[in-house]
Simulated assay, not measured.
Amino acid sequence: GSFKPEPGLFLHAAAGLGVAPARCAVVEDSLPGVQAGLTAGMQVFTLLPRQQAPLALQDRAIFIRELAELERYF
């Protein structure tokens, strides 16, 4: 099996849908999930507070406070 922060689950889902990872979006609420999505090459939206993410990830994910905010991106 493949467990977060390994990207295998996300890559498997993208392959099953026939969609390139770069055209996928991930919504995550955990740091391992954010790491997995980024490693998979996907756009990551996270409900994590920005201060809980390592500095190296803060510019790579989009931080949201609630799922309704996703509307502005799609």
Rank of each mutant, 00 (worst) to 15 (best):
S2Q: 10
K4A: 09
E6D: 15
P7V: 13
L9Q: 07
L9A: 10
L9Y: 02
F10N: 02
F10H: 06
L11T: 03
L11N: 07
L11E: 04
H12S: 10
H12N: 12
A14R: 04
A15S: 08
G16E: 12
G16T: 09
L17V: 01
L17P: 02
G18Y: 12
V19Y: 05
A20C: 11
A20R: 15
P21H: 07
P21Y: 07
R23A: 14
R23H: 10
C24V: 04
A25C: 08
A25H: 05
V26E: 00
V26R: 00
V26W: 00
V26A: 02
V26F: 00
V27Y: 02
V27I: 13
E28T: 14
E28Y: 12
E28M: 10
D29R: 11
D29C: 05
L31P: 03
L31D: 01
P32N: 15
P32I: 10
G33A: 06
V34T: 07
V34M: 03
Q35V: 13
A36Q: 01
G37S: 12
L38P: 04
L38R: 00
M42L: 11
M42C: 10
L47K: 04
L47D: 01
R50F: 08
R50M: 14
R50D: 10
Q51C: 07
Q52V: 06
Q52W: 05
A53V: 12
P54Q: 08
P54N: 05
P54K: 06
L55F: 04
Q58R: 15
Q58H: 10
Q58Y: 13
Q58P: 03
I62L: 15
F63K: 05
F63D: 00
I64T: 03
R65E: 11
R65H: 07
L67Q: 08
E69L: 03
L70C: 06
Y73R: 11
Y73D: 10
Y73I: 07
